[in-house]
C-alpha cells in the first residue's frame, strides 16, 4: 500500500459531495427551527407519522412494487433471450435495450405522453376500430407504465449477466438426467439466477420509490409520491427540516427493502452481482 495518497482525491471528493451533505441532511432532519436558532427534536418524524403522509408513503411503495413486478415479468424472459446462444442478434438486442438510456429521462417520459393522450397514437389506433378514446394519460396506470419503461434495463442487465455466466453443463446434466425444459428452468436455471433477480429488484425498486418526475408528468400532479412531497417541502414550503426527515425516511425504506432481499439472497451470495448491497 505504498501509493496510499492516490486515494486522497477520492476521499476528499466523497467528503465534500457525500459525507458532508449526508451530515447536513441528518442535522436538518433531527432539528426544528425555534425562532432564530434551531434545537434538537423528533417533531419532523412525528409529523411524518400522520395518516396523510403515511398514505403518500404507502402509495409510493405500492407503485414501486407494481413497477418492480412489471419489470421482472417483462425483463426475465428478455434476459433469457439475450443470454441464449444466438450471438449476432444478441448484440443488436442489447444495444436496443441500452440505447434509450442514453437519452434524458424527461424526453423518454414525454414520449409516453404523446402515446397515451386522448388524441395520442394509441387512441388514434384504437379509434380505427371504433374504440375509445380512453383516458390513459394522467392515471396511476400511466405512472406505472412510465416507471417500467424507464427502469426496465436495470432489471434486465443484472439477470442477463448472471444467466450468461451460468455453467451450461449444469443444464446439460439436468437434461441428461431426464428433466424437461420446465423442470430445468424451475430447478436449475431460475434458482441459479436469483442473485441477478435480487439486484435487479433492488435497482428497480430504489429509483421507482423515489421518482417524482414520472409521477408529475404522467400522473398530472394527482399521484403525489414521497419524491413530490420532498420537492414541495424544499422548494415551496421552505421547510428544510421536514424535507430532510422525509429524505431520511425514504433512505430507511430503501435500506429495509435491500436488507430483506439480502436476507433471502444469503445462500446465493457467492457470485459477483448479488453482492452489490
Amino acid at each position: 500500500m505504498k501509493k496510499k495518497w492516490l486515494s486522497y482525491p477520492y476521499m476528499i471528493w466523497m467528503a465534500i459531495f457525500i459525507v458532508i451533505p449526508m451530515a447536513l441532511v441528518l442535522f436538518y432532519a433531527f432539528t426544528v427551527k425555534d425562532g432564530e436558532s434551531v434545537r434538537f427534536s423528533l417533531a419532523n418524524f412525528q409529523k411524518f407519522c400522520q395518516p396523510v403522509y403515511l398514505k403518500v408513503a404507502l402509495r409510493s411503495i405500492m407503485l414501486a412494487f407494481y413497477c418492480t413486478i412489471g419489470c421482472f415479468l417483462l425483463g426475465y424472459p428478455l434476459a433469457m433471450i439475450l443470454a441464449s446462444k444466438e450471438y449476432v442478434k444478441k448484440r443488436m438486442l442489447l444495444l436496443l435495450l441500452i440505447l434509450p438510456m442514453w437519452m434524458n429521462i424527461l424526453l423518454r417520459t414525454y414520449a409516453w405522453m404523446t402515446l397515451l393522450e386522448k388524441n395520442g397514437l394509441i387512441n388514434n389506433f384504437l379509434g380505427n376500430f371504433g374504440l375509445g378514446p380512453y383516458q390513459f394519460l394522467y392515471t396511476d396506470v400511466a405512472v406505472v407504465i412510465g416507471m417500467i419503461y424507464n427502469f426496465l434495463p436495470f432489471m434486465v442487465l443484472p439477470i442477463y449477466s448472471v444467466l450468461v455466466k451460468m455453467d451450461h453443463s449444469l443444464i446439460e446434466a439436468a437434461e441428461d438426467l431426464g428433466a424437461g425444459r420446465l423442470t430445468v428452468f424451475r430447478k436449475v436455471t431460475f434458482p441459479l439466477s436469483i442473485p441477478g433477480v435480487m439486484s435487479g429488484v433492488v435497482m428497480v425498486f430504489m429509483p421507482a420509490v423515489s421518482t417524482f418526475i414520472i409521477s408529475r408528468l404522467l400522473g398530472g400532479g394527482q399521484f403525489s409520491l414521497i419524491g413530490n412531497l420532498i420537492e414541495q417541502q424544499f422548494l415551496w414550503v421552505g421547510d428544510w427540516h421536514f424535507g430532510s426527515a422525509l429524505s431520511i425516511v425514504m433512505m430507511i425504506l430503501i435500506l429495509i427493502s435491500t436488507a430483506i432481499l439480502n436476507h433471502y439472497d444469503r445462500d446465493h451470495d457467492n457470485e459477483g452481482v448479488g453482492g452489490l448491497w
Binding site: 395518516p51 396523510v52 403522509y53 398514505k55 403518500v56 400532479g221 394527482q222 399521484f223 403525489s224 412531497l229 414541495q232 417541502q233 415551496w236 414550503v237 421552505g238 421547510d239
Partner: peptide, 15 residues
C-alpha cells in the same frame, strides 16, 4: 401560514 397551504395541498392529493 404557508404551512396551512402545504397541509391543504398534501391532504388534497393524499387519497
Amino acid at each position: 401560514a404557508i404551512s396551512l397551504y402545504d397541509k391543504a395541498w398534501t391532504e388534497l392529493f393524499a387519497d
